[in-house]
Amino acid sequence: MRSAFDFSPLYRSTVGFDRLFDLLDQSSQIDSMTNWPPYNIEKAGEDQYVITMAIAGFSTDEIEITQKENQLVVSGQKKGSEEGKQYLHRGIATRAFKQTFNLADHVKVVGAGLENGLLTIGLKREVPEALKPRRIEITTARSQPQQIEHDKAA
């Protein structure tokens, strides 16, 4: 099933973005139950991002954050027993969760903290100098093109 958006015009004019379009299609089909716990993704600067997740009732030793390549996985599992407790109303969910975030290239986790039931994960995009765009000088026919020298520290 396709999403409400028709990406076919973009398929005709782009190359190599199939994964992006597939992710957009998948995100529109995700069941609301998999979106627990609720979270925000915020752009905090030019190359900085913050993910905030509402995980009331979980402590730091019950949460695991793992980054492998371009995936960030946040999971939580309550420890301990709640035997003997009788609830008249239970509105704070304590079920296990696993939330996966697909990260762009060169995005790294720079820190995480838990305060007042909110897990905050700081992310930063650090593009290596060798991959950043650089300006190329254009020479005229009268002048010789300058030879580009590369670092020989290999």
Rank of each mutant, 00 (worst) to 15 (best):
H106D: 15
I148D: 04
F17N: 09
K79V: 11
T94C: 03
F21H: 02
A154M: 06
K78D: 04
G117E: 05
K68L: 09
F101N: 06
F101A: 07
P145Y: 01
D105P: 09
I136L: 10
D25H: 13
S8G: 04
V127W: 00
L24E: 10
S13M: 08
G80R: 02
Q86C: 03
E115H: 11
A130S: 14
A104V: 10
L114H: 09
P9Q: 05
V107Q: 02
G91S: 15
G45F: 01
D18V: 06
G84S: 09
S143Y: 05
R95A: 12
G45Y: 01
I55W: 00
E115M: 09
L119I: 08
I51S: 04
G76E: 06
E115I: 08
Y11F: 10
P38A: 07
N35C: 10
E83C: 00
V50R: 07
L88M: 12
E83Y: 02
E126N: 12
Q146A: 14
L123V: 06
G122E: 13
S32M: 06
T14R: 00
V110F: 00
E62N: 04
Q48L: 04
F7R: 03
V50K: 07
W36H: 05
I148Y: 02
E46M: 03
K108F: 11
I65Q: 04
T66S: 10
H150T: 15
S81E: 11
N70Q: 14
D31H: 11
A130V: 15
S8K: 07
A112E: 14
Q77S: 09
L24N: 07
A93W: 01
A153N: 14
L103E: 06
T34C: 07
G80F: 02
K108H: 12
Q99C: 03
Y87F: 15
F17T: 11
S3D: 13
E137F: 02
V50A: 02
H89T: 15
T100R: 04
N102H: 12
V15C: 03
V127N: 05
E137T: 13
Y49S: 05
D31E: 13
K79L: 13
A130E: 13
P128W: 05
L123M: 07
Q48D: 15
D47L: 06
E64A: 13
G16R: 01
F58K: 03
G111A: 11
D22M: 07
V15T: 13
R12P: 00
Q146V: 13
D18I: 02
F101K: 03
K85M: 09
E126L: 08
E62G: 05
G84Y: 04
N40E: 07
I121F: 01
T100Y: 00
V127Y: 02
K124P: 02
W36A: 07
I63F: 01
A153D: 13
K108R: 12
A44G: 01
Q146Y: 03
Q77Y: 00
G84D: 07
Q86M: 09
S3V: 08
K132Y: 00
R12N: 07
W36T: 10
E69D: 14
T139Y: 08
K78Q: 12
I65C: 06
R135M: 12
R135E: 14
E46P: 09
V50L: 10
W36S: 09
A130Q: 12
K43D: 01
R2Q: 13
T60C: 01
K68P: 01
Y49H: 06
E149T: 11
I63Q: 05
Q77G: 01
V73E: 11
V73L: 08
E115C: 05
E69Y: 08
F21C: 03
R19L: 08
